[in-house]
């Protein structure tokens, strides 16, 4: 592989007190591609995402961005690199409006004063760029939005900045059929626009519909990373549930030594 991945993780370990949640994780995500991150409940997907986003700091391992080793200790560090995360539990403030949420923590200012007009313009342009037409007013409180609209705001927030990597943690989990299709289309468009996208999902149809690569986590270990075109539904399900499938995954039990 000659292309440098936008994000490359090597040997990531993470423990919460005595419980080790991530063991020696390796993960690569490439520009222009959707990398699906799959795994059963509690496999450690969200924890890995929080490590990428600087919410948790890792215990060991390398974090390479565009081939350069970097240190990410806070959400600000991640944002400075161009990493944006759409968290499973949406990180939106219900009492703020759409524009305020999209710019939260990175408001545009004119002197001491918030530059509301510029922020509203930029937010409108971004939503337009994503062909989002479902919100009536950008000055609407987020508490008044539907699940799909909230998800849209969260995703738009992630692409508002010159982001290079967008990570989406189960963006379609709470959505109906039509809204899921909309969000998946949005996810695909992000990658087609040249971003590296990591998508977490439990839904195999969604995974195969949009992703180029699939990375399967099993009990906090990376079971396999494969091209989506090289595997079948059944193989991915097997990787998720047993950590291996045929010649994919570690060839001994997860507790023993890997190949």
């Amino acid at each position: 592989m000659t292309v440098t991945p936008t994000l490359e993780l090597r040997g990531i370990d993470k423990s919460f007190g005595p419980v080790q949640v991530l063991h020696d994780i390796a993960l690569s995500a490439y520009a222009g591609e959707v990398t699906a991150l799959v795994g059963d409940n509690g496999a450690g997907k969200s924890t890995l995402v929080k490590c990428i986003g600087g919410i948790h700091s890792v215990d060991a391992g390398d974090y390479l961005f565009d081939g350069r080793p970097v240190q990410v200790h806070s959400p600000r560090d991640a944002a400075a690199l161009g990493v944006e995360i759409v968290y499973q539990d949406l990180a939106l403030c219900d009492n703020l409006d759409i524009v305020q949420n999209m710019f939260l923590g990175r408001e545009k200012r004119r002197g001491m004063v918030l530059d509301d007009s510029t922020m509203e313009e930029m937010a409108a342009a971004t939503l337009r760029g994503l062909s989002v037409r479902t919100v009536k007013s950008l000055r609407q409180k987020v508490s008044s939005l539907s699940g799909g609209q909230r998800q849209t705001v969260a995703i738009a927030k992630a692409v508002l900045w010159n982001s290079k990597l967008v990570v989406l943690d189960e963006p379609t989990a709470a959505l109906g059929v039509a809204q899921t299709a909309q969000v998946l289309e949005l996810v695909r468009r992000l990658a087609d626009n040249g971003l590296a996208v990591v998508l977490i999902s439990h839904n195999m149809n969604d995974v195969f519909a949009v992703s180029d690569r699939i990375a399967a986590l099993y009990l906090g270990r990376m079971a396999a990373q494969v091209k989506a075109s090289d595997v079948t539904h059944a193989q991915v399900v097997e990787l998720i549930t047993s950590g291996r499938s045929g010649n994919l995954g570690p060839q001994t039990t997860p507790n023993g030594a890997a190949v």
Binding site: A79, D89, A91, L92, C93, N95, Q100, L104, R106
Partner: peptide, 15 residues
């Protein structure tokens, strides 16, 4: 307002 609305969201926004 953000911290009052959701302290966690504010933290993730780097506040």
């Amino acid at each position: 307002y953000a911290v009052g609305g959701s302290a966690e969201a504010a933290r993730r926004a780097g506040i």
